[in-house]
Design a binder for these strands. Structure first.
Lengths: 212, 212
DNA sequence: GCCAAACTTGACTAAACGGTCAAAACGGAC
DNA sequence: GTCCGTTTTGACCGTTTAGTCAAGTTTGGC
């Protein structure tokens, strides 16, 4: 009755130190669990245990399981987009593509959990982030595709469909995070796969894209 | 008591017509459901409904949920491997790679559910088919990598790590099945993505791999 | 047509799980 | 130290879901 703000998750403007700290702890714990078991495969008890708190306390910060999931996804998406935003029209085309591939591979190595979380969401039809795909993501791809098209028109890059080029780069870079188990099984060595992957991918793509 | 063979799933050798028919119906229904919702997200009731039979009857043929899942995966894996087995040392290297990419893309278009099922299983750490990855899959990749290595040694293909080449081809081809929602959101058109994807991928890979 | 084996299902159970609630513990301002 | 809002939790509830069971129906060989 005299509880004017029953939901701390809604008060983004006024957060206590404890709230910011615990929300961060929860999101980190949830990222690990969700990325391993998926949304349906994850239980609140697992997240609570990993975050070191009781389940009701978890629900004090995020009243619904889906709220935790969306919070984790949102934090992940910004990081995911960032490398593409850096693609610079003023740079050398082949070198810009090289930098983009290197950045995306580094992200796959540094934060494979985020990549897997994202992959899982898309694989199941993007129920929680469909709007992100058709909104900000598509807009960014449109913008960067235009740059690539101009490079091609100037004869500074081999003629390919710029959107499929971007999609293809996503595919080869994220694959090393999402399918890590398979990659390691097939390679059979203890060595980190990504350095060799980088050499191979750069060789194929940069030779394949160099104007002739 | 006088039920010497209580589990029809174990009697692979002696199956009635009804058994073969219903097992096939179940596996088909389960593929659709598992590939959409994942293992945990799928309920036996969904599979039973799609297969047009009662849940207890479903469990008459597959006593455990996991048994259905493994059966679907096994049927899928054979199809998944097939294109790579066709890579022919006697053929022209660049043309053999081209054929392989085309076949894998065709598979993605014809049976995206199978690709997604497989992707989901790997993404979650391959709990049910770890042995397939380190066994038959790795063996096949070893065998075909050797062929590619010889092509490179003969100067008939640009020098790249053959295992990473195969992995990279998997990545770009399966991506169009697994991430279909994202691909369509980014392209924004109603057109089928795969024909344009094929042109782009072939252009990059074949130019990238042609010896220079 | 009869019979036994094969097949099918409605009704049920036990466990897992998302979420609630009321009450206790804590913390910072005075 | 007192007080009040914030944080924390044990106990609980309703639903969902994998799997059981016993009884019914169908099928195929004779």
């Amino acid at each position: 009755m005299n509880r004017p703000e029953p939901d701390p998750a809604l008060r983004a403007t006024t957060r206590t130190r404890i709230q910011s700290r615990n929300r961060e702890i929860i999101v980190q714990a949830a990222l690990e669990v969700f990325s391993t078991y998926g949304f349906r495969g994850t239980t609140l008890d697992q997240i609570a245990a990993k975050a070191g708190m009781s389940k009701p306390n978890l629900l004090y910060y995020f009243p619904r399981k889906e709220g935790i999931y969306v919070a984790v996804l949102e934090e992940t998406l910004t990081e995911w987009l960032e490398p593409l935003t850096r693609l610079d029209e003023a740079g050398d085309p082949v070198d810009e593509i090289r930098k983009y591939i290197v950045l995306k591979l580094e992200l796959s190595r540094r934060n494979p959990a985020a990549s897997r979380l994202f992959a899982n969401e898309i694989l199941h039809g993007a129920p929680s982030i469909g709007g992100f795909l058709t909104g900000p993501l598509r807009a960014l791809v449109d913008e960067k595709s235009a740059i690539i098209s101009r490079w091609i028109a100037e004869g500074r890059l081999a003629p390919v469909d710029p959107r499929h080029l971007i999609i293809t780069i996503w595919a080869v870079t994220q694959h090393y995070a999402d399918f890590d188990v398979q990659v390691r099984a097939v390679l059979g060595s203890e060595a980190e796969p990504i350095p060799d992957a980088e050499a191979t991918i750069l060789s194929i793509f940069l030779n394949g894209l160099r104007p002739r």
